[in-house]
Amino acid sequence: VKKMAKAIMADPNKADEVYKKWADKGYTLTQMSNFLKSKTAGKYDRVYNGYVIHLD
């Protein structure tokens, strides 16, 4: 998940494709939050927020 999150950060155009894969795998927002937690607070906030919007 972190590898794909980094791919989104490097190229935001990949976001919809990645979010669809995550949704197809049934990842919940709680799971995504836990996967994307980082020592650098807020590092993956943009990715998480994008997934929230995708699921909505």
Results as ranks from 00 to 15, higher is better:
Met4Ser: 07
Leu36Thr: 01
Ala41Gly: 10
Val52Phe: 06
Gly26His: 05
Thr28Glu: 03
Leu29Met: 07
Leu55Trp: 06
Lys14Thr: 09
Asp11Ser: 07
Met32Leu: 14
Asp11Ala: 06
Leu36Glu: 04
Tyr51Arg: 00
His54Val: 06
Leu36Met: 01
Thr28Ser: 09
Ala7Trp: 08
His54Gly: 02
Asp56His: 13
Ala41Cys: 12
Tyr19Ala: 00
Ile53Arg: 14
Asp24Leu: 12
Tyr48Cys: 07
Tyr48Glu: 04
Leu29Ala: 13
Lys14Ala: 10
Lys37Val: 10
Lys39Val: 10
Arg46Pro: 11
Asp16Trp: 11
Ile8Ala: 07
Tyr44Gly: 03
Tyr27Asp: 00
Ala23Val: 10
Thr30Met: 12
Met9Arg: 07
Ala5Cys: 06
Thr28Gly: 05
Asn13Phe: 10
Lys37His: 11
Tyr19Gln: 00
Ile8Phe: 01
Lys25Cys: 15
Ala15Gln: 08
Leu29Val: 11
Ser38Asn: 05
Ala15Val: 04
Asn13Asp: 12
Tyr44Asp: 01
Phe35Arg: 03
Leu29Phe: 05
Gly50Ala: 04
Val1Asn: 02
Tyr48Ile: 13
Ile53Lys: 15
Gly50Ser: 02
Asn34Pro: 00
Ile53His: 13
Arg46Val: 14
Ala41Pro: 15
Lys6Ile: 10
Gln31Met: 14
Asn49Gln: 14
Gly50Lys: 04
Lys3Ser: 11
Ala23Phe: 08
Asp11His: 08
Ser38Phe: 07
Lys25Arg: 13
Ala7Glu: 13
Met4Tyr: 06
Lys37Arg: 11
Tyr51Phe: 08
Arg46Phe: 15
Met32Gln: 01
Asp24Gly: 08
Thr30Trp: 11
Asn49Ile: 12
Asp16Met: 10
Lys43Leu: 11
Tyr44Glu: 03
Lys20Phe: 06
Tyr44His: 01
Ala10Trp: 09
Asn49Tyr: 14
Asp56Met: 15
Leu36Gln: 01
Tyr27Gln: 01
Glu17Lys: 08
Thr40Met: 10
Tyr19Val: 01
Pro12Ala: 10
Phe35Trp: 15
Met4Asn: 06
Leu36Asp: 03
Asn49Ser: 09
Gln31Val: 07
Asp24Val: 07
Lys20Glu: 08
Trp22Asn: 01
Asp11Val: 04
Val52His: 07
Met4Gly: 08
Thr40Val: 11
Asn49Glu: 15
Gly26Lys: 06
Lys39Trp: 08
Val47Trp: 04
Met32Gly: 03
Ile8Leu: 07
Tyr51Asn: 01
Tyr19Leu: 02
Tyr44Ala: 01
Met4Asp: 15
Thr30Ile: 13
Glu17Asp: 10
Asp56Cys: 15
Lys3Trp: 09
Asn49Met: 14
Asp24Glu: 14
Glu17Ser: 11
Thr40His: 15
Leu29Tyr: 04
Ala41Leu: 11
Lys6Asp: 15
Asp16Thr: 13
Tyr51Thr: 03
Ser38Gln: 04
Leu55Ala: 02
Lys20Ser: 10
Gly42Met: 05
Lys37Trp: 09
Val18Arg: 01
Ala15Phe: 04
Thr30Gly: 12
Thr28Gln: 03
Phe35Ile: 11
Asp16Ala: 13
Arg46Asn: 14
Ala7Leu: 14
Arg46Gln: 15
Tyr19Pro: 00
Thr30His: 12
Ile53Ala: 15
Tyr44Ile: 02
Gly26Asp: 03
Asn34Ala: 13
Asp45Gln: 08
Val18Met: 09
Val18Ser: 03
Lys25Ala: 15
Phe35Asn: 04
Ala23Leu: 07
Gln31Tyr: 03
Val18Glu: 02
Lys20Tyr: 07
Asn34Thr: 10
Ala23Met: 09
Val52Cys: 09
Thr40Arg: 09
Leu55Ile: 08
Lys25Met: 15
Asp24Met: 11
Thr28Tyr: 02
Ile53Gln: 14
Glu17Phe: 10
Asp45Ile: 06
Tyr27Trp: 08
Tyr51Ile: 04
Tyr19Asn: 00
Gly42Val: 03
Leu29Gly: 05
Val18Gln: 04
Met9Lys: 05
Ala15Trp: 06
Ala15Pro: 01
Phe35Lys: 03
Trp22His: 00
Ile8Trp: 00
Leu29Lys: 12
Gly50Phe: 07
Val18Tyr: 09
Thr28Ala: 01
Ile53Cys: 11
Lys3Tyr: 08
Ser33Asp: 10
Met9Ala: 04
Tyr27Ala: 00
Leu29Arg: 08
Gly26Trp: 03
Asp56Trp: 14
Ala5Thr: 02
Lys25Ser: 14
Lys2Arg: 12
Tyr44Lys: 02
Met9Thr: 04
Asn13Met: 12
Gly50Val: 07
Phe35Ser: 03
Lys20Cys: 07
Asp45Trp: 10
Pro12Thr: 05
Asp16Glu: 13
Lys37Met: 09
Val52Trp: 08
Tyr48Val: 07
Val47Gln: 01
His54Glu: 03
Lys20Ala: 11
Thr30Ser: 12
Tyr51Leu: 03
Ala15Ile: 04
Leu55Gly: 01
Glu17Asn: 08
Thr28Cys: 05
Ala41Glu: 14
Glu17Gln: 09
Thr30Val: 12
Val1His: 04
Glu17Pro: 05
Asp11Asn: 12
Asn34Glu: 15
His54Met: 07
Gly42Tyr: 06
Lys21Pro: 00
Leu36Asn: 01
Tyr48His: 03
Met9Tyr: 05
Ile53Trp: 09
Thr28Lys: 02
Lys14Ser: 09
Lys14Leu: 14
Asp56Ser: 15
Ala41Ser: 12
Ala5Val: 04
Met9Gly: 02
Leu55Cys: 06
Tyr51Gln: 01
Arg46Met: 14
Ala7Tyr: 08
Ile8Thr: 03
Thr30Phe: 13
Tyr27Pro: 01
Ile8His: 01
Tyr27Asn: 00
Lys6Thr: 06
Lys20Trp: 05
Ala7Asn: 07
Tyr48Phe: 13
Lys37Ala: 11
Gln31Phe: 07
Lys37Gln: 13
Gly42Cys: 07
Ala10Thr: 09
Asp45Thr: 06
Lys6His: 10
Ala10His: 11
Val18Asn: 04
Gln31Cys: 09
Gln31His: 08
Asp56Tyr: 14
Asp24His: 09
Asp11Cys: 12
Arg46Gly: 13
Lys21Ser: 14
Ser33Glu: 13
Lys6Tyr: 05
Leu55Tyr: 04
Tyr48Asn: 01
Lys3Gly: 08
Tyr19Met: 03
Ser33Asn: 10
Ala5Met: 03
Val52Ser: 10
Asn34Ile: 13
Ile53Met: 13
Val52Asp: 04
Gly42Leu: 04
Ala41Asp: 13
Lys2Asp: 03
Asp16Gly: 11
Lys39Ala: 12
Ala7Val: 11
Val52Pro: 01
Met9Asp: 02
Lys20Met: 09
Met9His: 05
Asn13Ile: 09
Val18Phe: 08
Ala7Thr: 10
Ile53Pro: 02
Asp11Leu: 03
Thr28Val: 01
Leu55Phe: 04
Val47Met: 03
Met32Arg: 00
Lys21His: 15
His54Cys: 05
Thr28Trp: 05
Ser33Val: 10
Lys6Leu: 12
Tyr44Asn: 01
Tyr27Val: 03
Lys39His: 13
Lys37Asp: 10
Lys39Met: 10
Lys3Pro: 04
Met32Ser: 00
Lys14Glu: 06
Val18His: 03
Lys21Cys: 14
Lys39Leu: 08
Ala23Trp: 07
Lys43Ile: 09
Lys21Thr: 14
His54Ala: 08
Ser38Ala: 06
Gly50Arg: 01
Lys39Pro: 09
Lys39Ile: 09
Trp22Asp: 00
Asn49Lys: 11
Ala41Ile: 13
Val47Phe: 04
Lys43Arg: 08
Phe35Gly: 03
Tyr27Lys: 00
Ser38Arg: 03
Gly42Ala: 05
Ser38Val: 06
Asp45Leu: 08
Val1Asp: 02
Pro12Glu: 08
Ala5Tyr: 02
Asn13Ala: 13
Lys21Glu: 15
Leu29Glu: 06
Asp45Phe: 04
Val52Ile: 09
Lys21Gln: 15
Gly26Tyr: 04
Glu17Gly: 10
Asp56Asn: 14
Lys39Gly: 13
Leu36Lys: 00
Met32Ile: 15
Gln31Gly: 02
Lys2Ser: 04
Thr28Ile: 05
Val47Asn: 00
His54Asp: 02
Asp45Ala: 09
